[in-house]
């Protein structure tokens, strides 16, 4: 692999001088894995962003949306998705020590939960040096609603995004 840094002007000159190279690009085979990785940055298709935002963590169990009402989901409409990925970044100069847990439940045709409470999917403690990214994979998919909760003895802000992936057909 090699790369060089060029200006926009130089890039335009090269494209104009070598249009055949550009034509070759359109028919070049690429790895499917690469396509899947890049997809969310272009057009959410089989990867969807379910939630994105900031959570103020404190000593209470809060959902990513900040509420402490256990009845409320953090994400809804997750039925089609095989798995969810929660990626986050905690602000602050102290080491990150955030407890997290994930709940899930199913709803009926009217969107009403089948019963009270939630199914516990898992829980863990996120421990990283300050200002590092973390990522949590939630492999138990196809539940309709999830509640992701965080708690930290040291108050801090967590910026995070929850995305979900689903299978796809190749035509």
């Amino acid at each position: 692999m090699s790369a060089e840094r060029i200006t926009r002007r130089e890039m335009l000159k090269r494209l104009i001088v070598a249009p055949i190279g550009a034509a070759v690009l359109t028919t070049l085979e690429v790895r499917q894995a690469s396509a899947a990785t890049m997809q969310p940055y272009y057009d959410p298709y089989f990867v969807a962003v379910l939630w994105e935002g900031r959570t103020r963590c404190d000593s209470l169990w809060r959902s990513l949306k900040g509420d402490v009402a256990p009845i409320l989901p953090a994400v809804q409409g997750a039925t089609p998705y095989d798995r969810l990925y929660w990626t986050g970044y905690a602000l602050g100069s102290a080491p990150v020590n955030v407890a997290m847990r994930v709940w899930a439940r199913a709803v009926d045709h009217n969107g009403v939960p089948l019963g009270n409470g939630w199914r516990p999917i898992g829980q863990a403690t996120i421990q990283t040096p300050p200002q590092r990214w973390f990522r949590v994979e939630i492999p138990e998919g196809h539940w309709d609603e999830y509640r992701l909760e965080v708690r930290s003895a040291t108050p801090r802000l967590v910026y995070s995004r929850v995305i979900a992936s689903q299978g796809y057909w190749k035509e």
Binding site: M1, S2, A3, E4, R5, I6, T7, R8, M11, R14, L25, L28, V30, R31, Q32, S34, A35, A36, M38, Q39, Y41, Y42, D43, Y45, F46, P80, Q166, G167, Y168, W169, K170, E171
Partner: peptide, 23 residues
């Protein structure tokens, strides 16, 4: 602003075509 050779480590950024999500 960076021109890179296509390789396994540096694949082309592309969109998935001819694919449909399965509900």
């Amino acid at each position: 602003s960076e021109l890179a050779d296509v390789s396994m480590e540096s694949p082309l950024p592309v969109q998935v075509a001819n694919a449909k999500p399965v509900p």
